[in-house]
Computed example of a mutant assay.
Amino acid sequence: MEKQSKIFIAGHNGMVGAAIKKALESNGYGNLLVRSSSELDLRNQQGVLDFFEAEQPDVVIDAAARVGGILANNNFPYQFLMDNMQIQNNLIDAAHKHDVKKFIFLGSSCIYPKLASQPLKEEYLLTDSLEPTNEWYAIAKITGVKACEAIRKQFGKDYVSLMPTNLYGTKDNFDLNTSHVLPAMIRKFHEAKENGHLPVTLWGSGTPMREFLFVDDLANAVLFALESVLPDYLYNVGTGVDLTIKALAEIIQKTIGHEGTIIWDSSKPDGTPRKLMDISKMHSLGWKHQIELSEGIAKTYAWFLANQQDYKQVKL
């Protein structure tokens, strides 16, 4: 990949897109193309086609998506399905029509069946039913994966999909109505500590197993995919290590210095019992994560402390 190739990073203001932009800039890529959502609504097909006609990017990295946790997926199923399908379909179709040679599509481990064997292998896609609490997002992402596979198969273009495990890190979303489990815990434990080490109530039983990847490691996986011709259409990206939600809570509690009790609200859903990625395909090609969970949580908490003025404190 030429350092002056014109690379469009869709979703550059989000946690993932910002990390990708930083990684590419750090590695000498100086011709990066970005647009905010106010400048280019990726849900607008004609607007996306006009943008590609004007800019003619060489590479597209799709880090744009409507994302959120169980609560957001449950409350806004139509938006999670339709917004994500419109965003990715417009980007993939415009890239194909304007002969973009390389397209990197980012999805999620939630594309795999709820009760699939662990660890999750790429070939498990579409072999059973999805987890109901996030199926709307999952179905949208599956269509993106299959669209890229279809273009790869029919037209021989280098369109590849990377499926990261649960992501966290700097520029994460700490809004308790829409955030994922790890940033939500950071905020809850921090505010409980600030209010005299009040008890913290967390959803579910604490028994589900989850795997977490620091966002800079995903950005490096995207850089790896950018600079390589990957032989297959779909790759898992993760650490290959998981832990219980209870153990995660204890690490975060210790990192923050919260000394109160943890209350588990078992009336709330747990979601999928376990989601561990089989990352042997990426490992075999030479990519591996670098940042372990405790270090990543500390980095994320430090970013939260520096930016917490953006979040109103909640009543605990």
Rank of each mutant, 00 (worst) to 15 (best):
K3F: 09
I7T: 00
G14T: 04
A18K: 04
Y29F: 14
N31Q: 14
L32T: 11
S37H: 13
L40Q: 08
L42R: 01
L42S: 01
Q45P: 00
Q45D: 09
V48T: 11
D50W: 06
P57Y: 06
P57Q: 08
P57S: 10
I61A: 01
V67C: 02
V67P: 00
G69P: 00
I70S: 06
L71P: 00
N75R: 12
P77F: 02
Q79R: 12
M82G: 06
D83H: 10
D83G: 05
N84D: 13
I87D: 03
N90R: 04
I92H: 06
I92Y: 03
I92D: 07
D93S: 14
A94H: 03
H96E: 13
H96D: 13
D99V: 09
K101Q: 15
K101E: 14
K102T: 01
F105L: 07
L106G: 03
G107D: 01
I111V: 15
Y112I: 04
P113E: 06
K114V: 08
E123Q: 10
L125R: 04
D128A: 12
L130W: 03
W136A: 13
I139K: 06
I139T: 14
A140Q: 02
I142T: 08
A147Y: 02
I151R: 02
T165K: 01
N166W: 07
T170R: 12
N173H: 07
N173F: 02
L176M: 12
L176T: 09
A184T: 00
H190V: 09
T201F: 05
G204H: 11
T207R: 12
F212N: 03
A219T: 07
A221Y: 00
L223H: 02
A225L: 07
A225D: 07
L226M: 10
S228W: 05
V237P: 04
G240K: 05
V241I: 15
V241N: 14
K246F: 15
K246C: 13
A247E: 14
Q253V: 05
I256E: 02
H258Y: 01
D265T: 12
S266P: 04
S267I: 11
D270A: 10
R274Q: 13
D278P: 05
S284K: 09
S284P: 03
L285D: 02
G286A: 08
G286W: 09
H289Y: 15
Q290I: 04
E295P: 07
A298S: 10
T300E: 06
T300Y: 04
F304T: 04
F304D: 02
D310E: 14
D310Q: 15
Y311L: 13
Y311F: 15
Q313M: 12
V314L: 13
L316Q: 11
